[in-house]
């Protein structure tokens, strides 16, 4: 195939996907002004998305905090700068590692599940059935997922931050023999509130992007079970790309001299 044609086809595919994602976002925003969405479905999604995700988030965050302390342990031992241990772990967890890692875990667990669920509904004509029953799928299915994912990713990030710091403190106490009070002193004395709020902004943005991208792929499935598999795969990849793109943008803004 002509290389130019390949590039052109790829560009058109990417444009179509991006256009589809933007259209889903526009439909969600239109459905939210004034807010019209199914209350029961929202509660159900808050449970599925949030409550069912906390064990994996706690585990991921705990070990991430622990690993960060172990990694920095070599230098802390060499320099004896134990006071910096809490600052280093806190800074990295609150601003970067916490929201990004939890976002990636969330996209793998919740985003992929969402695409598979909506995709299966699409290929089994359940979405069409909603429309013929005079029920707008955006109001009934998409908006509750959007609200739940945004809200729950923020809460899960706060929970994850907390457990990452706990993991770091326990590791510093038992592996590096640095008192956990020294660790937490390092965290709290460093005034990491800006980093904490930057992390929350990232979590809201990741939640929105994961929900919109996963809903787009789910609702545009065609071709039966194979199509659902392809859509889930594409959704996971796109969500990861989305997380890193938005992470870069927000980090750049947060560190820009304009905001200092």
């Amino acid at each position: 195939m002509n290389p130019l044609a390949t590039i052109g086809a790829g560009f058109l595919d990417a444009s179509e996907t991006l256009g589809g994602i933007v259209m889903v976002l526009v439909r969600i925003l239109r459905a939210m002004v004034p807010p019209r969405f199914d209350r029961d479905e929202t509660w159900l999604n808050l449970y599925k998305v949030g409550v069912k995700s906390y064990p994996i988030v706690i585990m991921t965050a705990f070990f991430t905090g622990a690993i960060m302390v172990i990694q920095s342990g070599v230098y802390v031992k060499q320099t004896g700068a134990t006071g910096l241990l809490g600052w280093g772990a806190g800074y990295a967890v609150l601003a970067e590692i916490g929201p990004v890692l939890i976002g990636l875990m969330f996209s793998g667990r919740v985003g992929a599940n969402n695409t598979a669920e909506l995709g299966t509904m699409k290929v089994t004509e359940q979405i069409d059935a909603l429309r013929t029953l005079a029920i707008d799928p955006t109001h009934y299915l998409v908006v509750p997922r959007f609200v739940s994912m945004m809200l729950m990713l923020v809460l899960l990030t706060v929970l994850g931050d907390l457990f990452a710091l706990v993991g770091g403190a326990i590791t510093s106490e038992f592996v590096l023999e640095v008192d956990y009070r020294v660790f937490f002193q390092g965290v709290f004395n460093s005034n990491l509130l800006d980093e904490f709020f930057t992390g929350l902004i990232k979590a809201i943005t990741f939640g929105a992007s994961i929900s919109v991208i996963s809903c787009h792929y789910g609702l545009s499935v065609s071709g039966g079970a194979t199509g659902v598999g392809r859509a889930v795969n594409a959704s996971v990849v796109s969500n990861a790309i989305g997380i890193f793109v938005f992470d870069s943008i927000i980090t750049w803004f947060a560190n820009s001299s304009l905001f200092r």
């Binding site: 089994t124 059935a129 013929t132 707008d136």
Partner: peptide
């Protein structure tokens, strides 16, 4: 939407939720 409230469709593949 209002029109669909007056129309029904039975799907070939059931389309039950």
């Amino acid at each position: 939407q209002r029109l669909r409230e007056r129309v029904g469709l039975v799907f070939q593949n059931y389309a039950l939720f």
